[in-house]
Amino acid sequence: MRAWNLIKIYTVLVYIFMFAPVAVVLLLAFNSSQFGGFPIEGFSLRWFAKLFENEAIMRAFETSLILGVLTAFFATTLGILASLALVRYKVPGKEWITTLLISPVLVPETVLAVGLLIFLRWLSMPRSFAVLLLGHTMIALPFVVLVVQARLVGIRKEYEEAARSLGANPLQTFFQVTLPLLMPAVFAGALFAFTISFDNITATIFWRPAGSETVPTQIFGMLRNSVSPEINALGFVMIVITVGVPLMAGGLARYFARKR
């Protein structure tokens, strides 16, 4: 049992290691000091006010949000279609196709980023928002495919066959039977894709159109000088969005599931 206690303490320490730095950012966001670090001089919301007055950051926020939502939409749509084909039909070379769909995870992101840029260069196309969107969609696609596929395997084919035999056409069957059953995975996949896009920096630095920033690249640029207190406030807002929204969605889903 002594060994077990050691394991317990060790685990707690690892969890502290994972969360203490994040907690410090959340804490420092409310520091009234004009420097981004310690010591804490007092409680203040002024850095949040400063944040909302900063036009560059607000513009980056808008770009990131739109990009994230569109990425979630496209990646989820492509992912559902591909998963349906792979799970519901006999496709020759299924293993190969799956590996191909997963390939963006296996190739280092830096290589993906440079490759797409070189391809664009060969096509003489400038970098644009559309390129960024396509790129993010590709990076998010594997995760959506894996999540949706896992769920689809668990939905019995009999439901769809019953709908078909009762006279529904394939589209009706999909929208009225398969999709509602698939909804949890669709939400999870979309949320996943949004977070991946909202958080991406490695490839985005390469792909962003000239003069355009997303929140992570904006922070990256600001870090070059020093850690300004504004970045802490921005970090706070980002964490609330990317952690708070999924947690709330999950919590609400549980709440409603219990009510029913």
Binding site: T77, L78, L81, L84, A85, I97, L112, L116, F119, L134
Partner: peptide
């Protein structure tokens, strides 16, 4: 199945395979 797969496979072909 190929109709369903084509958008995703096209995306991979143009955004991963061709660039590499």
């Amino acid at each position: 199945p190929w109709y369903l797969l084509s958008p995703a496979l096209l995306a991979i072909a143009f955004l991963v395979i061709a660039p590499i």
